[in-house]
Design a protein around this nucleic acid. Structure first.
Lengths: 197, 197
DNA sequence: TCGGCGAGACGAGACGGTCCGTCTTGACAT
DNA sequence: ATGTCAAGACGGACCGTCTCGTCTCGCCGA
């Protein structure tokens, strides 16, 4: 009656873990998310399928972890704070627009969003591990602006971020319009007018 | 040298078409999008698989058509225009929020968006057949408001709609916050402030 | 007017593939 | 000794193609 014993993380092979994450990231870029299979990841990584099934619950979780590993390297970076909120935000928004428009980021980000729509647990993990820290940094910059009287003191900062980023996100998901620096600037200007002190 | 002959739409069975669309809609509600297979749709509809493959290029296209059939019934409805833009928009936005929060709409809408992320052709069809007409009606209402001096005359109406709806859409996709009537009202108020004359 | 004919869509399901998730094996590390 | 490892066999689900035999048309000649 041996239950499927739970694995012992202490004995986990770091070598295999990295190989799986690398293979997953590569294959998503090459084939797009939908065409990537666990079998292909295992083969590319030179790893037994069981090794993947032992440590990850789903294909989405593997992909997610492969992104998480990437983003951890760029963690802790802070946003520019020159005192000029509009200029600072335009820099950040233009960078975001450029990132979304970059074909190299296209496939992985679409993969992640595909999985997130249908998987609440993954969505929660995304908010906590990826979006959360980044949003917190942005809100910190906005609080600084509130203190400087450049933003309404009673503004809901989560709402400010949504008004700022959601139109860009929707345009990217639905491919309903071009993502240009001008568009980034327009979003900043509109948001600042909406939440002016 | 016989090419795969292209089917003749004139001879298409309306009975089978409806059966497939109905079965697709039912199965998505019951199982969620990811677990629905073409085989299952064919079986439920009492239809040969070839009949589906003859008329639709992909699972996503079938699902999309099943929604399209639904939405055509409610086509041509116009938005309220009482002269009070803020009140009118709040009515519409609250209705939209309620629709997104309705569990009965949850599965189908997530299904559609899942497919749209990874399929540019389907995204284009979505914009043209579903989002397009609705957005046009909304923009007509906004033009009326511009004439009445309730909205900046030079406002980019596509951008207005994005600022109005995209935050709601993003919140729903990422499940990053509650969808309440208060939230709907807040979005209307912010948008009107941003695009005030 | 009517009956036969050919084209083509139909329901059903066999077929070879791919990938799933589980299970087994023997090597290896601790 | 115990548990992970790479490798891959296994049964099952679905894929997309294909082949059946049937059914429904429009057309054409009697």
């Amino acid at each position: 009656m041996s239950q499927p014993r739970k694995p012992n993380p202490a004995r986990r092979s770091e070598r295999s873990r990295q190989a799986v994450l690398d293979a997953a990231r590569d294959l998503v870029s090459e084939l797009g998310y939908a065409k990537v299979s666990i079998e292909a990841i295992a083969a590319r990584a030179g790893v037994g399928k069981q090794t993947i099934y032992r440590w990850w619950p789903s294909k989405g979780a593997v992909i997610f972890d492969s992104f998480l590993a990437l983003s951890e390297s760029e963690e802790g970076m802070s946003l520019p704070d020159t005192g000029d909120l509009e200029a600072d935000l335009k820099i950040v928004m233009r960078a975001t627009v450029a990132e979304f428009a970059d074909p190299a980021f296209e496939a992985p980000i679409r993969a992640l969003n595909t999985e997130i729509i249908g998987d609440p647990a993954l969505a929660a993990q995304y908010r906590e591990k990826l979006a959360g820290p980044v949003d917190e940094a942005k809100k910190e910059r906005l609080r600084s602006a509130q203190r400087a009287g450049q933003l309404a003191a009673d503004a809901d900062l989560d709402l400010v971020l949504e008004v700022l980023y959601a139109p860009l996100y929707q345009r990217w998901v639905h491919r309903s319009g071009p993502l240009t620096p001008q568009y980034a600037d327009a979003l900043v200007e509109i948001t600042l007018r909406a939440f002016a002190p």
